[in-house]
């Protein structure tokens, strides 16, 4: 029902995704003009494609929880916990010398284990939100600490390394010149888009986010929907954990700690309504691209790493201010004024 979104009554140019597309193109063009030989080089383009998927996948996890009006602050914790467990399997059971079919088999076991950990962690979050009635922000703040804590306790806080070579395939190889992490991100993004727009589940997710009480009265199985949302977020986080592990060739409890805020930032920048009820994957993808063009272009221009953080934050605030009128409308929409 993609053609029936609540914003289709607006013209294309008013859609937040359209604005984002313009921003993405402008940023790309600007960087290409400022540093044509290096920004447009094949090497830079590939390196960008290797860099962003890990946090972009986390942003997808954030997107689906935010669409319900919730949030998942445990994504990085889940990613690291699942990576640490996968790493334990890869180092202690497979070992760095493993090759060929044995290595592939252990990698498969490790991947399944990490996905299972992600799903279990998400299920735990879902239970906290549905059965205990905790606000998602608190539930996942607490559970995020618990997941990270388990990873710390298992590793004593140090990095786990010594994987079979095959592990680097996930994060560092290409298929027909396309980096594997990018393929993973693309597959997950398309899957999430289809899930949100073409399935009953996805529509229920959005509707619940728009008005939880009305969802209850419409006999939507809210608990099951929310459980599945957090399980999906957990599994996406686990995939991100695998990419991080493979690229770093190790797993550690505190990898990617800056990714949490980045994931929230990208989701909001991508037009996802943090109060729930609206979120489109295309917007999130455009937000990710804008951020990556911007940060790697700035790298080319010898701008320090820290300036990226500054610019990301400024971009978020700018987009929010531009959208202010929209927000006011959305918020008013949730609390309709009483008219006599």
């Amino acid at each position: 029902m993609s053609g029936s979104g609540s914003r289709t009554e607006m013209t294309l140019s008013q859609a937040p995704e359209f604005r984002l597309a313009i921003i993405a193109v402008l940023v790309f063009a600007l960087m290409a003009v400022l540093s044509p030989d290096r920004f447009l080089s094949a090497q830079n383009l590939t390196s960008m494609a290797f860099q962003f998927p890990e946090f972009a996948i986390l942003a997808l996890a954030m997107t689906i929880t935010m669409t319900t009006g919730g949030i998942d602050l445990s994504v990085v914790g889940v990613a690291n916990l699942s990576a640490v467990i996968a790493a334990a399997i890869l180092t202690s059971l497979a070992g760095p010398e493993a090759t060929g079919i044995v290595a592939v088999m252990w990698l498969a076991v490790a991947l399944v284990a990490s996905l299972a950990v992600g799903a279990a962690a998400g299920f735990f979050n879902g239970i906290l939100v549905t059965r205990l009635g905790l606000p998602p922000i608190l539930a996942t703040l607490g559970s995020g600490l618990v997941f990270t804590g388990f990873a710390v306790a298992m590793t004593g806080g140090s990095a786990v390394m010594g994987f079979p070579d095959i592990v680097s395939v996930i994060g560092n190889s290409t298929i027909w010149f396309v980096p594997v992490p990018l393929i993973l991100f693309a597959v997950l993004a398309i899957a999430l888009h289809i899930l949100l727009t073409r399935t009953g589940f996805g529509l229920r997710v959005t509707m619940y986010g728009a008005n939880p009480l009305a969802a209850l009265y419409a006999a939507i199985d809210i608990d099951r929907i929310l459980l599945r949302v957090y399980v999906i977020a957990g599994m996406f986080s686990a995939v991100a954990g695998m990419v991080i592990m493979s690229r770093a060739n190790s797993a550690k409890a505190d990898y990617g700690s800056s990714y949490l805020l980045l994931a929230v930032l990208i989701a909001v920048l991508g037009g996802v309504n943090p109060y729930g009820g609206y979120g489109r994957v295309i917007g999130v993808v455009l937000a990710v691209l804008s951020m990556q063009f911007l940060s790697s272009g700035l790298n080319m221009l010898q701008v320090s790493n820290f300036a990226r953080e500054l610019i990301w934050g400024a971009l978020l605030l700018l987009v929010m201010v531009i959208n202010t009128t929209n927000w006011a409308g959305l918020r008013a929409g949730r609390k309709p004024a009483k008219t006599g």
Binding site: M1, S4, G5, S6, T8, T199, G200, L203, R204, T206, M207, A210, N211, L213, A214, A215, Y217, A218, A219, I220, G277, Y278, L330, G333, R334, P336
Partner: peptide, 23 residues
């Protein structure tokens, strides 16, 4: 507050009850 998903389309507000049957 209870009956409708105000920000969502009229279509979705009707269809939400019949999602299972149309899957």
């Amino acid at each position: 507050t209870e009956g409708l998903f105000l920000t969502q389309s009229i279509l979705r507000n009707v269809a939400v009850g019949r999602l299972q049957e149309h899957e």
